[in-house]
Structures are given as structure tokens and as C-alpha cells.
């Protein structure tokens, strides 16, 4: 990520000095968990994105594919998670093309932690990384400052306390795939219902040795919107508008070079 521009930094800093607050960014204010089982590893996440106390996205995907055999779940700043995982997935692909081998989970982990450490925690990505490779199945967590943890089960995000309460009381060794899926979704549901910043659905991803990874989008959907009492379609003509100042025009399906050239000229 060599291309980050700091052009506005001094301007924004001087605005901040005059009492200006930095803008609200979308946070995944999240519950994410990971859990190993005999034969693979599972990642699970809720699907709510918040901006303060308002829900910005009711069904966002917090499980990111880094490689076909390595996935990660992200908590923290939404755009940092999107971009950092997008970048890592590209670099892992290049790396595996270069080496001619399937990427290893520790490669992704080490690479990501070195990147995040470089930014001293300002890139707000808090990740749980899971995958299977030639050395077995792995589960790691990674904090924005660059520290990492290893464990048979992990939880991160604002709902991690709720999720961990389930994991700590119900996790046992040698879980089957089905048991681990149930445990993970139950842990996420604890976050969904008890942490205000987590909500909506449960997404789940199963990564197994020798099998393609399977993403269960909307694995559990316990918060479907109820049917409204009334229909609020308005009679046509309810809204008043100026005839002058209103117009109808068509956009060309395939704009050719000439149109583009004209658009350049249009800039005043």
C-alpha cells in the first residue's frame, strides 16, 4: 500500500486544531469467532455494520477470502478490513503463483502482522485468520497493532465477551464439524442478541482439509423483518415539482470515444 496520499493531512490537522472532530467512519462493531474441529477450522461472523448507534449495513459480509484455503473474519474499521484483506488476497495469489505452492496460513498471518505493525494500529483491522495448508489446520487472531494469538477457539470484536462466554462454557476437544458449526453460530448469536453493535444474521465458513472451502452466507437468520402493517405507496402526483427545471433524456447504452471526449470538455 505504497500509494496512500497524505495531501490533506496538514489541512485536516489544522481543522482538528480549531476544534474540528474527525468524521465518523463505518465500524463493523462486530462479533467474530473461529473454532477448530477434527479435520478443519470454522470462521463465523455477524452481519451488522454501524456508524455510531445507527446501522449502516444490515447484511454486510465480514468473512473475507484470502486464498481458496485461507479465510479471515474482520472486526474494527470497515474499510480497513475490506482493503487490507483485498490487498493480502492479491499478494497471496502472487506469492503462490511465484512459489508454485498453495499458500500457508502463517504466511498470510506474518505478512498481515508486518503490514499492520508498520501502521502502528492506525489501520484498524482486527482479524481472525483460519485455514488449512500442507502443515495442517490453523487458527490465529491478529490485532491492529500487530500482535497475534493462537488458539483452538477465538473471538474478537465488541461482542467477543458474549461470544467467549459461550465458547468457554461449551467448547471441548475433538469437536466434529457439525458440533463446531453449532458452537460457532451459537457464539455469534450471543453477540448478535447481547451486544448492540452486533446484529442481523450469522455467516459461517467451513475450511476442511482436501475439500473446497464452503461459505454459508446467512447460515442463521434470526432477525427477519416483519411484514409491515400498511403499504405506503403514494398516489401518483402527490409530490409537486417544477415543470421548468425538469427534463427527460436518454443515456447511451455504449458511450463511444466521442462522448467521452465531450465529457472532458464539459468540465468548467
Amino acid at each position: 500500500m505504497a500509494g496512500l496520499s497524505f495531501d490533506n493531512y496538514r489541512r485536516n490537522k489544522s481543522l482538528e486544531a480549531s476544534g474540528v472532530l474527525p468524521p465518523k467512519t463505518t465500524s463493523t462493531g462486530t462479533t467474530i469467532v473461529g473454532c477448530k474441529f477434527n479435520g478443519g477450522v470454522i470462521l463465523s461472523a455477524d452481519t451488522r455494520a454501524t456508524a455510531g448507534m445507527v446501522v449502516a449495513d444490515k447484511n454486510c459480509l465480514k468473512l473475507h477470502r484470502l486464498a481458496p484455503n485461507i479465510w479471515c473474519a474482520g472486526a474494527g474499521t470497515a474499510s480497513d478490513n475490506d482493503k487490507v484483506t483485498e490487498l493480502e488476497s492479491s499478494q497471496l495469489e502472487i506469492h503462490s503463483q511465484w512459489t508454485g505452492r498453495a499458500p500457508r496460513v502463517v504466511t498470510a498471518l506474518t505478512h498481515l502482522k508486518q503490514h499492520l505493525f508498520k501502521y502502528q494500529g492506525h489501520v484498524g483491522a482486527y482479524l481472525i485468520i483460519a485455514g488449512v495448508d500442507v502443515t495442517g489446520s490453523h487458527l490465529f487472531s491478529l490485532h491492529a497493532h500487530g500482535s497475534t494469538d493462537v488458539g483452538p477457539y477465538l473471538a474478537l470484536g465488541s461482542g467477543s465477551m458474549a461470544a467467549l462466554s459461550v465458547l468457554e462454557s461449551k467448547w471441548k476437544e475433538d469437536l466434529t464439524k457439525e458440533e463446531a458449526m453449532e458452537l460457532c453460530s451459537e457464539a455469534i448469536m450471543a453477540g448478535v442478541f447481547n451486544d448492540l453493535a452486533s446484529g442481523s444474521n450469522v455467516d459461517l465458513c467451513v475450511i476442511e482439509k482436501g475439500k473446497p472451502s464452503r461459505l454459508h452466507r446467512g447460515y442463521k437468520q434470526p432477525n427477519q423483518r416483519l411484514q409491515k402493517q400498511r403499504n405506503y405507496n403514494f398516489d401518483i402526483g402527490t409530490t409537486s415539482y417544477f415543470e421548468a427545471g425538469s427534463e427527460v433524456f436518454y443515456i447511451s447504452k455504449q458511450s463511444d470515444l466521442e462522448t467521452s471526449a465531450m465529457e472532458v470538455d464539459q468540465v468548467s
Binding site: G3, L4, S5, F6, D7, N8, Y9, R11, N12, P23, S79, D80, D82, K83, H122, V123, S252, K253, Q254, S255, D256, L257, T259, S260, A261, E263
Partner: peptide, 29 residues
Amino acid sequence: EMVEERSMEPNTAAHLVSSMLYSRRFAPW
């Protein structure tokens, strides 16, 4: 449009906007 010789789809436009904004992650518009 000049380089690609085709019109830009809405999802492409969205990703372009996203990249433009993230390129200024630490000094945003």
C-alpha cells in the same frame, strides 16, 4: 472510457470511488 473503449458499469464506478477515498485513508476527503 477512453482507455477501455467501453462504458463504466455502476459497480466499477463504486469501486473506483472506494479506491479514491481509501487512497486518502489518513487524510480523508
